[in-house]
Design a protein around this nucleic acid. Structure first.
Lengths: 106, 106
DNA sequence: AATTTGTGAAACCGAATAGTTGCACATATA
DNA sequence: TATATGTGCAACTATTCGGTTTCACAAATT
């Protein structure tokens, strides 16, 4: 049972949930109303999101409000950093390297 | 057969492949040498990465060099933008909204 | 021409996944 | 107290996934 942030955002429903609760905390029922799925299904997604600490909950009587753990989202951004360095470079390094390899082989 | 970029980067081996070929194009065999897996397994991952246009290939005789389609990576960055706006805000908006909802209910 | 090498793809398998159904439990409300 | 509501969780099912094995084919090498 792999439970990392990349596996968590792989599912489109979970990405939609994340976007939905990013700005305001919501209950599972309220979240489910926004999709063509059941409350139980949303509950399962929330469990997965909670397990990888992407989401936090606040009990409010019998209702549970879920909201995004925004700090955790930075981890994706952090992973992207290595590629950001590349795409910020003007010329196409990849083609350069490729032709370099080609030359070395000859 | 859902084939989007988020599902593509969900697998840790695929993320490793992406990192590996980000700076220089490599053949499937060369890639496989870097992991504890078979060439066929890598080939399957490359197929998935190709299907969602994260990777491009260049035939070189009987060898095929795979390299990262760096532009495609920007799509993840683009998706992150909506959250970047939030985490760049100093105070915690989420708690604010939550207490607002609480007040409205009373 | 025969053999080796690099590759894609199909068939198969065990594990994981998303969703549904049903149940249990706690908190509201009548 | 009885009923309605909000929720988590377990069991089940169909589908997908990652990996292995096997085969086919084309390009190099002998």
């Amino acid at each position: 049972m792999r439970r990392d942030i990349f596996q968590a955002i792989a599912d489109p429903t979970r990405r939609a949930i994340i976007t939905l609760i990013a700005l305001q905390a919501m209950t599972p029922n309220a979240i489910a109303d926004n999709f063509h799925t059941t409350r139980q299904s949303v509950s399962k997604h929330l469990r997965i999101l909670t397990e990888c600490e992407l989401v936090k909950q606040k009990q409010q009587g019998r209702e549970i409000y879920y909201s995004l753990e925004i700090e955790k989202m930075k981890e994706i951004d952090k992973w992207l950093n290595q590629f950001r360095k590349i795409w910020e470079t003007r010329f196409n390094q990849l083609d350069q390297v490729l032709s370099t390899i080609k030359k070395q082989k000859k």
